[in-house]
Every structure is written in structure tokens, then in C-alpha cells.
Design a protein around this nucleic acid. Structure first.
Length: 421
RNA sequence: GGGAGCGUGGCGCAGUCGGUUAGCGCACCAGGUUGUGGUCCUGGGGGUCGCGGGUUCGAAUCCCGUCGCUCCUCCCA
């Protein structure tokens, strides 16, 4: 092996691609039903976009970005998420003033420099949606409904939704103070990370899994209990909508997310079948982000999920399976004339929309038939001198083994296979 | 960032108290059988035993280092 893969970046091979297409198709189809339109944006952006958008103090910006200078010494970064780019495009296109309400979705690779493990890689693939321009709680419910609907479409079970509200910027400020004063008396009894977090971002203490910290975390007040009147009202209405739509959720007062732009509604869709990386998708509101980027005050929300994790769940037998692949017809040939007939016939049949293959290595007939089997060909034609001369042959249905006489013209073959199907 | 396990043909593995030419299964290629498949039989190609150093008459095997992979923790998608 001369070159190795880059750590944490994987080839998605033909044997697995069916699962990926299945997941992508579910995303695209769900987006159609919910009327979210696709946007594709560059894989590289100016570093500042992410640093400002996600927050300098976050793990992602602080230590997980693929950042490098371009040839003019500008700092660029391989996108670690999609929301910042969508908001940038929203402003670039003038939508903020011209078409402020937008429902968008995207699919594509993201990059984070993390230690790879099951369900976590350095180049990973996300599906996500963003809905900009409305503060209405029914939109929160729609975004969550989208997530559930997509999973339904894939037949994935064993899922549950964590839901919380972290309030507006002011609420976060006051909640931060509340947590600081809550934890301060016990800080000596808590882990070193929490020691540090108390100053930097006390919200993150709620995420701590250290046993010694648990008693204090359990006692901690929840963010949803310290919302301003507007935010409390909003959260209540989001829950009302979810109830009305029959969408289940569990309030988790400790759910705080790792990116700074979130406000109010936050949620994660968890899988019971994923082991340690069990978040299938996560998202929330970011009502201040457009403004952070210099636009007019514009609310927004969305979620992003990981295709790798989705594929793991699907491959473990949860839900839908990709259709088995196979070609319509294999043309085995003998001798020069048979081969000529096979090559030309293949061209015409392919143009007619059939999936057709032939042997390209001049192998014995028996090996060609073995190949036809490996390709799961549904039909077989053997073409030799006789067939080339008479323009008639016998087409075989591989599974049943039965043969039918047939004229060797594209039209006759297409007609025969159409009838079979 | 912390922890555990593992690196031997393409894949999955055996071999590891140091001892001839490093094996097996699958896959691949060819032949048995130049005109009808999935079976079977025979043969074949393919390995610097992750890499570097050390110990030794001798290292896949022991020691040190290093790189990589996998999982857990952490964080998240």
C-alpha cells in the first residue's frame, strides 16, 4: 500500500452506496413534502465565518477546525457545519430584505478534527434544514416534525427526542449567573474540567459525566425554569404544537448544545441503538445569528444530522433496506462475430435504457456466465457465429433457467424484457 | 485530552515459551469443459509478518521506540 487514507476520512464503497442513497432519498423526499428547497454552498469558507458564527469558545472552533492559509495568506476553513454558510448565503442573496422567509435544506460533507470512532469521523456527511424569518412556535414544531418524518420514512425506531429551551441572550446571561452561584459553593468537590467551566461556560457543567459532579448537577436549576416571559411563552407554545401533532419528546433541562448561536428551542434526536455516539441529529433556534453576521434581526432555526450514524442504524437492521442491485441483461459472446454483435447490441440496448454488460477480458464462456451470476444479471444471451449469422438467439431468464427464442434486434429484446418485468 | 485492545497476501484469521522454504479459508486468475451459470476437482499469482532500532548464530515470535486501526471516555452529527 503506497498511500493510506487520511485518518478519520473514509471511502464510501459500492457495496455500501445503496444504504447512502436510501438515506439521501429519504432526506430529499421529506424536504419535498415539507417544501424545503435545496441549497449547495462551498466546502471552504473564511475562517471568521465559523469563528464568529459558532463562537470562539466552542470546542469546534477552538480545536476541531481544519484551518489553513490560502496562497494570499487568508485564513480558510473546511466547513465544520452548514448553518453559518446558509446564513451567509441568505445575506449575500439579499433575502434578509427581499425574501426574508426561507426554508432550505442541504446535504454534504463536513470536517472536524476529532478522534475518530464509531459514528464519528473527520470527514462526515450531514443532512440539515434551516428555516429563516419566523419566530412562530409552529415553525419549531415543523422542523421537529420534519426530523421525525424523515426517520419514519426510513422505518427507524428506537428514537427519542430531547427537548429544552435555553432562552434568549438575556436569559442565558441570567441563567449563567444562576448556575455560577449554584455551583460555586461546591466547586472544590467537582472535577477539574468543571472547575474551568465554571468561569468559561457554566452551562457546559450540565454536560459533565463525572460521577463526583452528578449530585450537584442534579440539584442544578433547569434553564427552562428561568426564562423571560416571552421565551417561556414561546417554549410553552412549541410544546403545545408538538402535543397537537402527536410528536413525542422528553424535556431535558440539562440539554445545552455545543454551539454558541443557539437560543430558545434546542433539541436532539437520540437513537437507542448507536452506542456512544447516539445523537442522530440535533438543532435548535438561532434568533441572533443573522444579526451577528451584520444582517437585520432575523430569527431562524434548523437541525443537522449525520448520515454515517443513520447508515449504521439502517445497516443494523433497523428499518428500510436498499433494493438489491443487478443488471437486466448480460451478453456473453464467442468468437469475433459474436463479440461484434454483443458490443453493438449492448450499445443500442443501453441507449434504450436497459442495464447491460459484457465481458471485457476475452474469457471462456463459462467464466462469462460466472460473471453474469456475480452481476446478478436477470437475463442472459449467448452470441456466437450462429446468432450473428441468423440474427436469432435464445434469451435465458437466469433465475428460472428457462430460455425463449428471440430475434436479436434491440426492439425485440427491449420488448421481451419489458414483458418480463 | 485520558483509557483499553489490535496490526501476518485484497478480506477474515492461524502461527507468537525464538529454530528449516510463513500457513489456512474466502476472493482473484487459469485449466478440467473454446456454446450455457451458481457445485466440484486441479493448478497458479499475490506477503519487506505496520515501520525503525535493539538482543541473538538465528526474530512474525523477545525488548525499546514509533506509526496506524478499533472501541471506550469526552464531545458532538
Amino acid at each position: 500500500m503506497t498511500y493510506e487514507r487520511i485518518r478519520g476520512m473514509y471511502d464510501i464503497l459500492p457495496v455500501d452506496i445503496g444504504w447512502w442513497r436510501l438515506a439521501e432519498a429519504a432526506m430529499i423526499e421529506t424536504a419535498r413534502c415539507f417544501n424545503y428547497r435545496e441549497i449547495r454552498f462551498p466546502i471552504v469558507e473564511y475562517t471568521e465565518l465559523f469563528a464568529r458564527g459558532m463562537g470562539e469558545a466552542t470546542d469546534v472552533v477552538g480545536k476541531e477546525m481544519y484551518t489553513f492559509p490560502d496562497r494570499k495568506e487568508r485564513s480558510l476553513t473546511l466547513r465544520p457545519e452548514g448553518t453559518a454558510s446558509v446564513v451567509r448565503a441568505y445575506l449575500n442573496e439579499g433575502w434578509a430584505t427581499q425574501a426574508p422567509f426561507q426554508k432550505l435544506f442541504y446535504i454534504g460533507p463536513m470536517f472536524r478534527y476529532e478522534k475518530p470512532q464509531k459514528g464519528r469521523c473527520r470527514q462526515f456527511h450531514q443532512f440539515g434544514i434551516e428555516a429563516l424569518g419566523s419566530l412562530d412556535p409552529s415553525l419549531d414544531a415543523e422542523v421537529i416534525s420534519f426530523a421525525w418524518s424523515m426517520m419514519d420514512r426510513l422505518g427507524i425506531g428506537g428514537l427519542w427526542l430531547r427537548l429544552n429551551s435555553i432562552g434568549c441572550a438575556q436569559d442565558r446571561e441570567t441563567y449563567r449567573d444562576i448556575l455560577t452561584s449554584h455551583f460555586s459553593p461546591f466547586v472544590d468537590q467537582m472535577c477539574s474540567d468543571c472547575h474551568r467551566r465554571l468561569d468559561e461556560n457554566p452551562l457546559r457543567i450540565l454536560d459533565c459525566k463525572e460521577p463526583q459532579c452528578q449530585p450537584f448537577i442534579e440539584e442544578a436549576p433547569g434553564s427552562a425554569d428561568h426564562l423571560c416571559a416571552d421565551c417561556a411563552d414561546h417554549f410553552g407554545k412549541v410544546r403545545d404544537w408538538l402535543d397537537r401533532l402527536g410528536l413525542e419528546y422528553r424535556i431535558d433541562p440539562r440539554l445545552v448544545r455545543g454551539i454558541d448561536y443557539y437560543t430558545r428551542t434546542v433539541f436532539e434526536l437520540m437513537s437507542e441503538d448507536l452506542g456512544s455516539q447516539d445523537t442522530l441529529l440535533g438543532g435548535g433556534r438561532y434568533d441572533g445569528l443573522v444579526e451577528t453576521f451584520g444582517g437585520p434581526p432575523t430569527p431562524g432555526l434548523g437541525f443537522a444530522g449525520g448520515f454515517e450514524r443513520l447508515v449504521i442504524v439502517l445497516q443494523e437492521g433497523q428499518g428500510a433496506e436498499p433494493p438489491t442491485e443487478g443488471i437486466d441483461l448480460f451478453l456473453a459472446s464467442l468468437g469475433t462475430e459474436g463479440r461484434e454483435l454483443a458490443v453493438t447490441l449492448a450499445k443500442h440496448l443501453r441507449e434504450a435504457g436497459l442495464s447491460v454488460d459484457i465481458d471485457h477480458r476475452d474469457r471462456a464462456l463459462r467464466k462469462q456466465l460466472t460473471l453474469a451470476n456475480q452481476l446478478s444479471s436477470r437475463h442472459l444471451l449467448v452470441l456466437g457465429n450462429d446468432e450473428a449469422a441468423s440474427r436469432r438467439g435464445r434469451i435465458k431468464q437466469m433465475e428460472r433457467g428457462e430460455e425463449t427464442g428471440i430475434a436479436l434486434t434491440p426492439d425485440a429484446i427491449v420488448e421481451h424484457l419489458t414483458k418480463e418485468a
